[in-house]
Each structure stands twice: as C-alpha cells, then as structure tokens.
C-alpha cells in the first residue's frame, strides 16, 4: 500500500451534521500491579508476618527448651529434631527464630508507628504554620538529627535501662526526626499547589486544609516511606540487641541471637546459629525494600528520587 502523493488533497469520508465531541485526553487508568520482584517481596513479608503472629504456636519447642536434654552440647549441627541446630545454650534455633520474629517485628512496627504519629503531626503542622514556628521546629529537629542514631540510642537505653517499652520509645523518638523532615517537605510541596490556595481563598480554616487538602495527597508517599523506615528501625533495634542493650536474655530476638551465638563462628561445628538470625533480618528487610521499590517505580519513582 502506498501513500498518496503530497500534492493530493485527501478528505476522509464524512457525514454532514455530525458534531465533533471534545476528545478525552485523560490517560487510561492504571492501578498498581506488582511486578515479579514485588510479588517475591510480598510473599516473603507475608511469610514473616505469619511467623511473627503464630510463631509461639508453630514452634516445635519452647523458647528456652532444650531439644536434646540428654545430650547437652552447644552449637549442634542441623539434624533431625533440630532442623537448624542448637545455639550457645543448646536451645533449638528454629524455635527461637520463630519466637524472636514476633518480638523483632513487633517492637520495630510499634516504634515506626510512634515515629510516624509524632513525625507526621509535627511535620505537617510545621508546613502549614507561619515561617517563624516552622523555623523553630525545624532547627530543634535539625539538632536532634545531627546526633548519630545508634549513639543516641545507646546513651538513652544505658541511662534508663533496657525494657521493651523503652526500646520502642527510643527508636520511635529517634526516627520521628527523620519522618518530621519528610512530612514537612511533602506538606510544603502540597501547600503551594493552587487547590490549597483556592481553599485558603475560600476562607477555610487550618484544620480543614490539613485534613482535607493536604493529608489525602501526602498519604501515599508517606505510606511508601513507612516501609522503608520500618527497615531502618528493624536494623536499629537489632543493632541495639546485638550490642546487648536491646531485648534481654533469655528472651529471643534476632539481633541478640546473633550476639549470643557469635562464639559459633570461632569454635562451633556450624555457623548456622549466627547465619539463621542474620539471614532472617536480611530477608525481611530486603523483601520490604522490594515492595517499596516496586510501588514507587509504579508511581514514577518520585519517592525514591526524593530520598
């Protein structure tokens, strides 16, 4: 098939009196559909969520029970009766991982929620406030941000003493500073949009503007960041536990399990006692990361660009 010559006058067939509607130029709607990596992330996170909730019931042994009470020996290799072997006190590693999952994930989740509640309320509050209030809040926040997180955590926990509520409060407060900065930045970005100005020009109050104009638009990027922040908090609480200031023995927690079993690297028969909790932390954080990446790639990667 060849094209008409450019000197020709082509007129498409038409009917007289047909109106030409304004064309729809809105793009077709595309919802979020996870990619393969997204599905992998979702599968792994779901797996750990089930373990975290039902671990104590699914575990073959108790948290501090000995699988081989008659043959006490530390760091036994994986074998029938103890699929991942035993730890420094000959306890079943699989069971302790399953008990520790709830504690590690629970503490981190609670701390992240606390960080988000504080950070978002204050951050968006600063974004809608006048420049003076914003200045004061931001400078105080900057001061806290300048302190290294793990050092600050160490000092606080060492001073007050370690317990689960203290851990949650410490991690929550430390990470609230980061969330504050993000929420303020997102809030500021939305504040300059025309629809917010239109609401102000209508005479709407500050509370209305926050809840109806800003929050619905800030929600999505903040939820995506929540996943990322959760990873940092998991690593933070695990680090504290590793240093001995987190979850206290004999309670199990992935970070403290790594520390307890460090000896296995030097004189144990297997390295599984260290590897298993470390891999647990790694798989969970990587999986959350996969989901976050997948979601933000769908949204044009705006969030990852901002980080």
């Amino acid at each position: 098939m060849s094209n008409p010559s450019n000197t020709e006058h082509f007129v498409a067939p038409f009917e007289e009196g047909v109106a030409f509607e304004e064309l729809q130029d809105a793009p077709p709607r595309t919802g979020y559909r996870p990619s393969l990596t997204g599905w992998i992330g979702i599968a792994v996170v779901t797996f750990w969520a089930v373990i975290a909730l039902a671990g104590p019931w699914l575990a073959p042994y108790g948290e501090n029970a000995l699988p081989f009470p008659d043959a006490y020996e530390e760091f036994q290799v994986p074998q029938a009766g103890a699929p991942l072997g035993t730890d420094v006190a000959d306890r079943d590693i699989l069971s302790r991982i399953m008990y520790g999952a709830g504690r590690t994930i629970g503490i981190s989740l609670a701390a992240t929620l606390l960080a988000y509640t504080l950070g978002v309320v204050l951050g968006i509050g600063a974004a809608v406030s006048g420049p003076k209030v914003d200045m004061v809040m931001s400078r105080i926040n900057d001061a806290f941000l300048s302190l290294p997180t793990i050092m600050l955590g160490l000092v606080v926990v060492a001073a007050i003493g370690s317990s689960i509520p203290v851990l949650i409060a410490t991690a929550g407060l430390i990470y609230a500073t980061v969330v504050f900065r993000l929420a303020r930045a997102i809030g500021m970005e939305i504040m300059v949009m025309d629809f917010v100005e239109a609401a102000k020009a209508r005479g709407e109050g500050r509370w209305w503007i926050i809840t109806r104009e800003i929050w619905p638009n800030a929600r999505m990027p903040l939820i995506t960041d929540f996943g990322l922040r959760l990873i940092y908090v998991i690593l933070f609480t695990s680090s504290l536990s590793f240093l001995g200031l987190g979850v206290q023995p004999p309670q199990a927690d992935w970070g403290s399990m790594v520390r307890e079993n460090l000896g296995a690297l030097q004189y144990g028969q297997s390295i599984v006692p260290v590897l298993a909790p470390a891999l647990s932390i790694a798989t969970l954080t990587v999986a959350i990361n996969l989901i976050v990446d997948d979601v933000s790639a769908h949204g044009g990667g705006r969030l990852s660009g901002r980080m």
Binding site: P4, N6, T7, E8, H9, F10, A12, F14, V18, L23
Partner: peptide, 22 residues
C-alpha cells in the same frame, strides 16, 4: 481527529479550501 486522518493536503488547499467539516 481521534487518531484518524480527516483531511490532508498542501497548506494552501487546507487553509483556503477546507472540505472536511472538522
């Protein structure tokens, strides 16, 4: 219009003697 060619031709023709209603 709507992904279809309705009329095509030299500029002079289209500007001065358009035939298609669109």
């Amino acid at each position: 219009y709507n992904g279809e060619v309705k009329e095509a031709g030299p500029t002079d023709v289209i500007i001065n003697r358009p035939r298609h209603p669109y």
